[in-house]
Design a protein around this nucleic acid. Structure first.
Length: 384
DNA sequence: TACGCGTGGGC
DNA sequence: TGCCCAAGCGT
């Protein structure tokens, strides 16, 4: 590790660490974020769910739109899941939106529209895990509860040069143990905010601004050969590699044919969309029907109506966390059968379709500014 | 328990 | 550019 003797540490005990962090937060922390204006549990909860694995700069606009449409948990609970998904569209990790809606209904049904106060009780609600429950309880009620997000993992593992763990689970346990031990008896809200602020603005993954850190030379990683953590000391700086990393799985690509069926009769273009299932990617969102081959897509188009022409548009790549999707739209002009009834699909005027909960690449495609726009690869005409 | 789950910022 | 990673959770 850093080689500094433990006796040299001035971050000596829980109180000392917290005191310095709290003082730093009051002076240098973030105070103007939209969700910091109130301690209303509804607003704090909404922001915490949105901020899970999502950057502050992205969340801000979504947060404002949600608050405008759903001023309180009652309006959110009363809304349809469809509307919630539509507002969430583009934010990703759509299961969060489902849980958000479910949680709002739990709060209204079981608790009269009031969020429970304790972290333990909050954790029973949909989509609220250990860290989020602690954040809400700490911010709203000053409960002595520990969070452990990416910021906190990085700050603690650097400041204390946490030792290598044999497994990811062991590393996680050690971090939680330390996080719990460090929470102060008072000023928990400022302390919790301070951990996040320090990790986000000073103790950054790369190029940490150690000169601005309240722990100064008492950080056991500062001055280490490799504070950013790509070398032998990587563990301390990058807790997510605390356990021996499995050999990186080869990044895979899936090719999807997306059937872009248009109703030729409509004055304004109308398209066929289907609601995706509750499992897998984009759960509950509306999407162009997905196939493995053009033949399958054309067969499906034939079920919707009489195919008049089809164009294979240029594929585009959409990167997911562990997967690249190569999306190849097949644009088909159809005279719909009068009585097509599929449980999961419907024709939508384009303008209405854009109001639905759509995956980001599908929205981009329908809005006409996909990466390769409307470049036609293969055209076909049917019926003459 | 390890893995699936989105999208965009930033370097 | 191609990565890393972000106020994690549920299963």
């Amino acid at each position: 590790m850093s080689g500094k003797p433990a006796a040299a540490l001035v971050i000596q005990g829980p109180q000392r660490f917290a005191e310095r962090l709290i003082a730093w937060q009051r002076e240098h922390g973030r105070h103007g974020l939209p969700w910091q204006a109130s301690r209303d549990p509804y607003r704090v909860w909404l922001s915490e769910i949105m901020l899970q694995q999502t950057q502050v700069s992205v969340v801000a606009a979504y947060y404002a739109r949600f608050l405008q449409r759903f001023p309180s948990v009652r309006e959110l609970a009363a809304a349809s899941l469809d509307e919630v998904l539509a507002l969430w569209s583009g934010l990703g990790y759509y299961r969060r939106a489902r849980h958000l809606h479910q949680c709002a209904q739990q709060v209204c049904t079981l608790n009269g529209g009031e969020f429970p106060r304790s972290a333990e009780a909050l954790r029973q609600l949909a989509g609220i895990g250990r860290s989020t429950a602690a954040a809400i309880a700490a911010f709203c009620h000053g409960e002595r509860a520990a969070i452990l997000d990416g910021n906190v993992k990085r700050v603690l593992s650097r400041a204390y040069a946490m030792p290598q763990q044999t497994s990811e689970a062991a590393a996680q346990r050690a971090l939680w143990h330390l996080a719990e031990a460090l929470v102060p008896d008072r000023d928990v809200a400022a302390y919790t905010q301070g951990l996040m602020d320090l990790g986000a603005t000073v103790c950054k993954p790369r190029n940490p601004a150690c000169g601005q850190c309240p722990f100064g030379d008492d950080c056991r990683t500062r001055g280490a050969e490799d504070p950013e953590g790509s070398g032998p000391n990587a563990m301390a700086a990058r807790p997510w590699v605390a356990a021996r990393r499995k050999p990186a799985a080869p990044r895979r690509t899936q090719r999807w044919i997306l059937l872009w069926a248009e109703d030729v009769r409509a004055a304004a273009p109308s398209i066929w969309l289907e609601r995706r299932g509750a499992a897998g990617i984009w759960p509950g969102l509306w999407c162009l029907p997905q196939f493995d081959t053009h033949e399958q897509a054309l067969h499906h188009a034939g079920l919707l109506g009489v195919v008049q022409s089809h164009d294979a548009l240029a594929p585009s790549t959409h990167a997911l966390t562990h997967l690249d999707l190569q999306l190849s739209p097949l644009r088909v002009r159809i005279e719909p059968r009068p009585a097509v009834h599929e449980d999961s699909g419907a024709w939508f005027p384009l303008r209405a379709a854009l109001e639905l909960g759509l995956p980001a690449p599908v929205r981009s495609l329908l809005q006409g500014h996909g990466p390769d726009d409307d470049a036609v690869i293969v055209s076909g005409t049917v019926g003459h």
